[in-house]
Simulated assay, not measured.
Amino acid sequence: MTDARYADAGPDIPLAIRAEDAEDLRVLAALAQDAVLTAGDMAHDGVARRFSLLLNRFRWEDADTARREGRPYERVRSLLVISDALRVRHDGIDRGDPATVLSLLDIGWQPGEDGTGVLTLTFAGDGAVAIDAECLSVDLRDVTRPYLAVSGDLPRHE
């Protein structure tokens, strides 16, 4: 028996992954890198202890195939859901303007005591969201079919 591979699922299968440890989070963060959203696409439900973001995610898992086949790069709408979110703090993000455009650069985890920790979402332009969490539980799920990336190009970083 061999392990399942992403390629076995086919190109049109929606992504649905969960991170419950630091290694899982590195994979999830790489897939969410360069996602674009607005400040209004973030929501914290204190009763459900959930922080959610609706992303326009660059399809990194398809980028090499798109380049090889000479076809345009794609994005997809995805939900990033952080469970067991106890407290959310924003730094450098104008929450008063829901149209503010944000670009997600990284997702990090700083473990605390007894499985708790702080999940940090880092955005371009020095913005960040810190989520105090009871445990590391992050889901990333595609919710639409892929669409052509408006820029038509790979995201680039200095």
Rank of each mutant, 00 (worst) to 15 (best):
M1V: 11
T2H: 08
T2Y: 05
D3K: 08
A7L: 11
P11F: 04
I13D: 09
R18W: 07
A19I: 00
D21R: 06
A22R: 01
L25W: 01
A32V: 02
Q33M: 08
A35F: 02
A35E: 01
T38C: 14
A43Y: 03
A43E: 11
A48R: 07
R49F: 05
R49Y: 07
F51H: 08
L53W: 01
N56P: 01
R57N: 02
R59P: 02
A63H: 02
T65N: 10
G70D: 00
R71M: 06
Y73R: 04
R75G: 01
V76S: 10
R77C: 14
S78H: 07
S78W: 04
L79Y: 14
L80C: 09
V81H: 11
D84K: 10
D84A: 11
L86F: 07
R87N: 10
I93H: 06
D94Y: 12
G96C: 07
D97W: 04
D97L: 02
A99M: 14
T100C: 08
V101T: 12
S103C: 05
S103Y: 06
L105Y: 14
L105E: 14
D106I: 03
D106Q: 13
G108T: 15
G108R: 11
G112E: 03
E113V: 06
E113A: 10
E113P: 10
E113Y: 13
D114V: 04
V118P: 01
V118L: 14
T120K: 02
T120L: 03
F123I: 01
F123H: 03
G125L: 13
G125N: 12
G127W: 04
V129I: 15
I131R: 01
A133P: 00
A133W: 05
A133M: 03
A133I: 11
A133C: 14
E134N: 13
E134Q: 12
C135Y: 12
L136R: 01
V138F: 00
L140V: 04
T144Q: 09
T144A: 10
R145E: 15
Y147G: 08
Y147A: 11
V150M: 10
S151A: 06
D153R: 06
P155S: 05
P155A: 13
R156V: 11
R156M: 09
H157W: 13
